[in-house]
Measured scan of single mutants.
Amino acid sequence: IEKFKLLAEKVEEIVAKNARAEIDYSDAPDEFRDPLMDTLMTDPVRLPSGTVMDRSIILRHLLNSPTDPFNRQMLTESMLEPVPELKEQIQAWMREKQSSDH
């Protein structure tokens, strides 16, 4: 029984630690959010139409349809242009958020 109590305490400790580690990014500025999924972008790319999306989301879309989801023009992965300035701004915002939450 004592071992179970210790195990339960350890589990509670881990759960509390994980809860502290989770950071809420739901208040991200609109320009940091993917327009299709409304999630925080981690690897922004510009489509030929000028729309900026997260790379993982547009690549997932391209698996089903080789088109720009906003104007239905033909689109391939090679046409995606990285946006390193925005990526750095997002990373800086995330770092600031992490340091203010801890």
Rank of each mutant, 00 (worst) to 15 (best):
L40M: 09
I1F: 02
S65F: 05
A28G: 13
T76I: 06
R55S: 04
Q91R: 13
Q91Y: 09
E2A: 07
P84T: 15
D101K: 04
H102F: 08
R33A: 01
V15W: 04
A28D: 09
D30V: 09
L63F: 00
P69L: 00
R33N: 08
L62R: 02
E13S: 12
E22K: 05
D54H: 02
I14K: 14
F4M: 06
E12W: 03
I23M: 14
K5I: 07
I1P: 02
P35C: 00
S65P: 00
D38E: 03
L62P: 01
D24A: 08
D27N: 09
A92H: 10
S49A: 15
A19T: 13
A21T: 10
L86R: 06
N71H: 01
Q91K: 10
S26L: 14
L80R: 00
E22L: 13
D24L: 04
D101S: 05
E2N: 11
K5A: 11
E88K: 09
K97Y: 13
G50A: 03
D54V: 00
K5V: 14
Q91E: 14
V83W: 11
E77M: 06
E81W: 03
T67L: 02
I1K: 10
D38R: 01
F70C: 00
S78D: 09
V83I: 14
M53V: 15
I1L: 07
T39P: 01
N64D: 04
K10I: 05
A21G: 07
D68V: 00
A28T: 14
N18S: 11
S78R: 12
E81K: 13
E96L: 09
K97Q: 14
L75P: 00
E85D: 11
P82A: 11
D38V: 15
V45L: 02
I90F: 03
Y25A: 11
K3L: 02
T39F: 08
G50S: 06
M37L: 14
W93G: 02
H102S: 06
S49C: 04
Q98M: 04
P35R: 01
E9Y: 14
D24G: 11
E13T: 03
A16S: 11
V52F: 06
N64E: 06
M94R: 14
A21E: 14
R20E: 11
L36E: 04
L75M: 04
D54Y: 00
H61P: 01
T51S: 13
D24H: 08
T67N: 06
N18D: 14
K3T: 09
E85Q: 10
V52A: 05
D101V: 08
P29A: 04
S100R: 09
V15G: 09
D24N: 06
I57S: 14
V15I: 13
E12S: 09
N18K: 07
D24E: 15
E81G: 06
D30H: 06
D43V: 03
L62V: 03
D38Y: 15
V83K: 05
D101A: 08
D43E: 13
D30N: 07
N71C: 00
P69S: 00
V83P: 00
T67A: 02
E31K: 08
D43S: 03
L75R: 00
I23N: 10
F70L: 01
T42V: 07
K97V: 07
Q73K: 09
R20M: 07
H102Q: 09
T76D: 06
V52L: 05
L6F: 11
E13Q: 08
K3H: 11
D30Y: 07
L6H: 08
I23F: 14
E9V: 07
Y25V: 02
N64L: 04
T42S: 11
T39I: 07
L62M: 14
T51P: 15
F4W: 06
W93S: 02
N71Q: 00
P35V: 06
L80Q: 01
K17W: 08
I90V: 13
N71Y: 01
K3V: 04
M74R: 11
L40H: 13
R72L: 02
K10L: 03
E81M: 10
L63R: 10
R95N: 06
A16T: 10
W93C: 02
K3Y: 05
V15M: 10
M74K: 12
Y25Q: 08
D43A: 04
N64T: 04
A8I: 06
E77D: 07
E9W: 05
M94N: 08
L40V: 14
L63V: 12
A28P: 10
E22N: 10
P48R: 03
S26H: 11
P48L: 01
Y25N: 14
M41K: 01
A92V: 12
L7D: 04
L86P: 00
S100T: 07
A19L: 02
L36Q: 01
D54N: 05
K3D: 03
E9N: 03
E2P: 03
L36V: 15
P44T: 01
Q91P: 01
D68S: 00
L47A: 08
I23S: 09
T76R: 05
T42Y: 04
M94A: 13
E81Q: 10
P69T: 00
E88V: 11
P69Q: 02
L7P: 08
D43Y: 04
F4V: 08
E9D: 12
D43N: 08
R95A: 14
L75V: 03
Q73R: 06
N18Q: 05
R60W: 01
K87N: 10
K17R: 12
P84A: 13
E88D: 11
